[in-house]
Write a protein that binds this DNA or RNA. Structure first.
Lengths: 183, 183
DNA sequence: ACAGATCTATCGCTTAACCAACATAGTGAT
DNA sequence: ATCACTATGTTGGTTAAGCGATAGATCTGT
């Protein structure tokens, strides 16, 4: 019943995304064209449009999948939302942000707003899924509200910490926990 | 008037060859299948047969193109056959042999006979081309004979040197030159 | 304000790669 | 010797990717 995607689409998709990431390390986002990306990916320019709507769509998908792979993947093995989970995610957010800013020094500025949006959406979906399992007695609205608030506050806290590293991350997380009510 | 090859064939060909080289560093030539190669290359097994007859054909082409790229490429800028050219080729043969034996420790033994054949053929073709330009007064047979003898003796000398490194390569090449009659 | 160039996005047609299926051959265990 | 298993090539039908052409958007210098 699984979709079973054609290997060619996966391969081409990856070629394009990798070429995009590679190019981002050298040039600013606005300074390269679709043609630059596809020729670096050894793919025809027209083929690009079988996979992505435009450059921004590509950017969004690259970021989303990076977030999924590098941040939420490793946490998804935890068995519920608790202090440990929160701590792991907090650390992951910071790691991811710094790695992006190192890998794409030229484009980091331009990317941040989309990163923020994607991050919060993914986090929210992640929390929502777990919260539904964990508190099946609560109704949908309550669960969603919890997820939204947690994801926004957590992401905000991470950004706040990144602007001023004085507190040690572990201590900062402890502080965070004071303001989160996990039932 | 140029052939203009479809980029897909080039890409697929490269994927297969790279996967083959990569696999050779880990396993012995006989210990992996066509399927292993193609799945590492993210290519369908049937597609393999659009490019190569079998595993040995692939091996041969990989070696041939490596020889061409890594050895004869850099020498082809020289403007004729002289002591300097001979020296450069001698050094290149040795470099190539050692790099292969390092990159493919598991399969080097099995490869050597084919490497030898390919090497001598390519060398011969290379010399033949230059000799024809250089000595347009000589007839074809003479030129071919010269090329055969030079390629075999040079390759043989290189193999000889590799078994006993006592002489410095530069000195060894000087010795070689005593036995070559360049006009 | 306009002309020339470049980039974007889409289209119909062609082709290389995918796939499932098959026949064949080699290998190993009982 | 026989069976089960795995690897090799091959084939016909299907699909993603390549290509040239095209129309419209965007940029740039004069």
């Amino acid at each position: 019943m699984e979709k079973q995607i054609d290997p060619r689409t996966l391969r081409t998709r990856k070629l394009i995304m990798d070429a995009f990431i590679e190019l981002s390390t050298k040039k600013d986002f606005k300074d390269f064209t679709i043609g630059d990306i596809t020729s670096a990916a050894t793919v025809n320019r027209a083929t690009f449009y079988n996979h992505f709507i435009d450059k921004y769509d590509l950017l969004e998908k690259v970021l989303r999948e990076s977030v999924m792979r590098e941040v939420l993947q490793e946490v998804s093995t935890h068995e519920g939302i608790n202090e440990e989970t929160i701590r792991a995610i907090f650390i992951s957010i910071i790691k991811f942000q710094t790695s992006i800013s190192n890998q794409c020094p030229r484009s980091y500025e331009a990317f941040t707003p989309q990163i923020e949006t994607i991050f919060k959406n993914e986090l929210q979906a992640f929390f929502s899924e777990w919260a539904q399992k964990q508190w099946s007695n609560k109704n949908r609205i309550e669960v969603e509200t919890f997820s939204v608030m947690l994801s926004w506050s957590l992401y905000g806290a991470a950004m706040h910490w990144m602007q001023d590293h004085t507190t040690k991350p572990e201590d900062y997380v402890k502080q965070i926990m004071h303001f989160i009510k996990l039932e």
